[in-house]
Amino acid sequence: MKDQNTSLPIYHGNETIRNISFMVNVAWGNEYLIDLLKLLKERNINVTFFLEGRWVEQYPEYALMIKDSNQEIGNHAYSHKDMRTLTVEEINMEITKTNEKIHEVLGVKPKYFTPPYGYFDSRVLEIAENLKMETILWSLDTVDWKIENPNEIIDKIVPNIKNGSIILMHPTESSLTALPSIIEKALDQNYKIKKISELLNNN
């Protein structure tokens, strides 16, 4: 949750409601995307995909698959740079160029932004807020870009799921393999899996 009067990132949803969300950051991993979307469809689950602008430009057909699967679309900056190292103009460009590309390809205007690597400073938050976007981070991280054993991901995530958890993942083999177990264990504990917008609006 976030104080509406200040520019702060959001790390989780309402901690009194049994909802959780997955955020899928996409700048690579095309080879696992179709199977990931198939898995989500089979389980009737919608999550939020944060897309890199450059990736949308290079792979519009994959971006369209995500949108057409009724998944929510967020902004993951244009070129996956550490936003803290950029000028104000460059930060603005990274976010706005991605919004423009997503709108051009998908007809969607993202409301949510997540910075590459989770790195940000006050300028990044202020620029996102000026663009009427909320900055989303996470409360649980699969670290699936370096953890290859899906059981390790399951053991890392499942015991730590709480009301409002936002779980970060990417299109990787390890997360794709771990996800069915994570979903089943969450559902068994009566959690509902929501898109970020639903998580934050307590739907």
Rank of each mutant, 00 (worst) to 15 (best):
F49S: 02
E94S: 10
G164H: 05
I66Q: 03
E57I: 03
L131A: 13
I166E: 01
L176S: 08
P110R: 08
D141Y: 02
N149E: 08
E57T: 09
D121H: 05
P171W: 00
K97Q: 14
I66D: 00
H103C: 13
I102C: 09
A77G: 15
T96K: 11
M65P: 09
P150R: 04
I66W: 03
G164N: 01
H76Q: 07
L168V: 05
P115A: 10
Q71E: 12
L106I: 14
V158L: 11
N46I: 09
E148V: 03
F50R: 02
K132N: 15
T87E: 12
K132H: 15
K156Q: 13
H80E: 06
M65E: 12
L51G: 14
G107P: 03
S175C: 06
E173D: 12
T177C: 05
E61R: 05
S122P: 05
L125D: 09
D144Q: 01
S122T: 13
W55Y: 12
E129G: 09
D121Q: 04
E173Y: 10
E129T: 14
L64H: 10
N149K: 11
E129H: 15
F50V: 01
I95H: 08
R43V: 01
V56S: 10
K97E: 14
V108P: 09
D82T: 08
D68I: 07
V88E: 14
L131W: 13
E90Y: 04
I167K: 01
N70C: 11
S79R: 06
F120E: 08
K101F: 06
N130V: 06
Y62I: 05
E134Y: 03
L168F: 06
D121G: 06
I136R: 00
T135Q: 10
V143Q: 11
F113W: 05
L131P: 09
I91V: 14
D121C: 06
T177Y: 05
E129V: 05
R43K: 15
P116A: 10
I127W: 07
I147F: 01
N160V: 04
N130I: 04
N44V: 15
N163C: 15
E173K: 07
T114N: 02
A178Y: 01
P150N: 00
F113Q: 01
R54S: 15
E148D: 10
S69I: 02
M93L: 14
G164Y: 03
D141R: 00
